[in-house]
Amino acid sequence: MDIDAGQRLRAIREMYGLSQRSLAKKAGVTNGIISMIEQNRNSPSLATLKKILDAIPISFSDFFTIDFDEKNQIVYRAEELLEIGSSGFSFRQVGRDLKEKAMQILHERIAPGADSGSEMLRHESEEGGVVLRGILELTVGGEVYTLGAGDAYYFDSRIPHRFRNLGEETVEMVSSCSPPTL
């Protein structure tokens, strides 16, 4: 694997919003050293590279493994959310591919009278959410809770649970599951 350390240092420095001068000052090296490394006119010793990376701060491992070619989407427009719901439940997921993701974020809508089912849900994760509008009935274990706009929940999803819209208007909420439930 051929790694361009100068290009990599420049990309990481810019990602952290540092100028060459500010990085040099934080690392205790000259501005010229940073410039020469970024132009691949100087190959730093491990000790010098460690000083520079400690000033960012970033580990050796991250410095050499961050994938700059992979464009990670940061903003998702409403029309880009992936619909994965059914039966009175609209789950609009942020992002299409959850492989190697630590959490799943959903914009949920639950139609009046809709229920996640008489059989309780269970999965290997934690979940939480905030009700934006409507009246939600949440059952976790043997406890039943009624939540309205502004109320929130957070629980271990291995505990049997279910959701139900008690009101006459659509329940709208934003929720998250970690790790994602695929």
Results as ranks from 00 to 15, higher is better:
Y145R: 10
V131R: 00
Y153S: 12
C177H: 07
E169T: 05
R133M: 07
R133S: 15
R133H: 12
V171R: 00
V130E: 10
L138T: 05
H161E: 13
E168N: 14
E143N: 09
I159C: 04
I159T: 15
V130K: 06
V130L: 13
D156Q: 08
R162K: 15
V131K: 01
C177N: 12
E169C: 01
E169H: 01
S175D: 14
V171Y: 05
G167D: 08
G150E: 11
D156E: 12
T139M: 09
H161R: 09
S176Y: 07
A152Q: 14
R133Q: 15
Y145W: 08
V144H: 12
S176K: 01
G128P: 00
F155Q: 14
F163Y: 15
G129P: 02
A152R: 13
T139D: 03
G141W: 02
G128E: 14
G134A: 04
G142I: 07
T139A: 06
S175K: 01
L138R: 08
F163D: 05
E127S: 08
D151K: 07
E143Y: 07
V140F: 02
S157C: 13
V171H: 03
V174Q: 06
I135C: 02
V131S: 03
V130F: 12
E127Y: 02
Y154C: 13
C177F: 09
S157Y: 07
